[in-house]
Design a protein around this nucleic acid. Sequence first.
DNA 1: CCAGAGCGAGAGCACTGCTCTCGGTGTGCT
DNA 2: AGCACACCGAGAGCAGTGCTCTCGCTCTGG
Lengths: 233, 233
Amino acid sequence: MTAGQTARERARAELTGAIKDEARRQLAVDGAHQLSLRAVARALGMASSAIYRYFPSRDELLTALIIDAYDALGEAVEAVEPVAEPALWWHAVCTAVRGWALANRHEYALIFGSPVPGYRAPHDTVAPAARIPLALVRVAEAADLPDGDLPAELRAQVEHVLGLAGSTLTPGAMARVMITWTQLFGMIGFELFGQLVGSADPADAFFDHTVREMAAFLGLRSPNVAHAIGPQP
Amino acid sequence: MTAGQTARERARAELTGAIKDEARRQLAVDGAHQLSLRAVARALGMASSAIYRYFPSRDELLTALIIDAYDALGEAVEAVEPVAEPALWWHAVCTAVRGWALANRHEYALIFGSPVPGYRAPHDTVAPAARIPLALVRVAEAADLPDGDLPAELRAQVEHVLGLAGSTLTPGAMARVMITWTQLFGMIGFELFGQLVGSADPADAFFDHTVREMAAFLGLRSPNVAHAIGPQP
DNA sequence: CCAGAGCGAGAGCACTGCTCTCGGTGTGCT
DNA sequence: AGCACACCGAGAGCAGTGCTCTCGCTCTGG
């Protein structure tokens, strides 16, 4: 894939990657707020102004990191191997999301926390962002989920989403997937941002139980042999 | 209430309030990231160094704003008048939360988005933060919710929370309240932070439907349906 | 082989949070 | 009433930031 590139192009791609890597390193340590272009340049031994040859602004660098984070999370989720029993598969996918979030909390905060710059350009991020809910849809499709009554307006929206996703789910089932989707990220966000500190502070048990409850809400049959296969640490 | 205060104390309280008001104004316009102590001082016609007589750092100012925001949201939620039918009351409370969030999105992002400074001091904020989940608990107490099976570890946590909240709910019901709590804020956060942009973008219908579904999940009878199916533990 | 695009470095601007010092002023105690 | 002291506002200053501009050097396509 690097064939046909001039030396300059290769150097540019390499340096772009190095800048992102260093930025990601600082992001993981100090958070998005502390990320400084000058500090990145300093760590790379280059003048701060040279960074602007690769990223026109700090926000553009952050946007690039956001897209990469979406992709990393998407890959982590898609790496979950399908299991015949949808409830178990569901549990594995949810656990993968949480595991990635806990392991990369600043990157998670970058994509699911409050938008850091004035406003994010949504169009570059919407495609990689869709990978995670799509993974949830794939699990749901493996089960035979009942439909459900939906108000007309919502039904139209959901059917449009079904078209985008190329999914065979019924609108009622898709709506429930969307509900569990928001629940999952709400719970993980609360855990990461300290909102559970007074209640379900070590959130493992709460997370595990909630995922099961949401699976039941979705319509996935819950495997009552809980001790057979436990959650991955 | 201002009796017994010296002129200096009154002036100090007044200026402290003025600083917070101006900061809140800038927050609402530009977001937390853009909030600048110097700009606040400039707007108030004072030297930037004088601000530090009232707030020792920018983060302290933000923390004060966070606590105020929690209280404002708490008041908005507690201002919801109880209704005899719990499902309706529930709906009103959830709608109040969303309404406040939409009307004060930067303040909402400040408290429920990613923690802006290195790390926030949690202990000053945990008390006002508890007002919102407590309001949800109060609604749940008005209904006769069934219990549910809980793993031992989670059950212990939930019972501890019940003690803190002084609630008469069963552990199973309390756990479901916590699940719906995280769902509610996950959904609102997704709407505010643009995560629903490709799917349920005008989120009114989705929100409305989800609140009803979560009420049914909780065990509140839906007012429009004769006898909704209760949750299955 | 050479014009022009790409590139790195440095200086510089306007801004930030924060500190320190310096006078003036209101306050509580004697 | 007088006074010591804590409090307060202003200004200068430090270190850091994002970003721009200009200057030479180098690699590249024609």
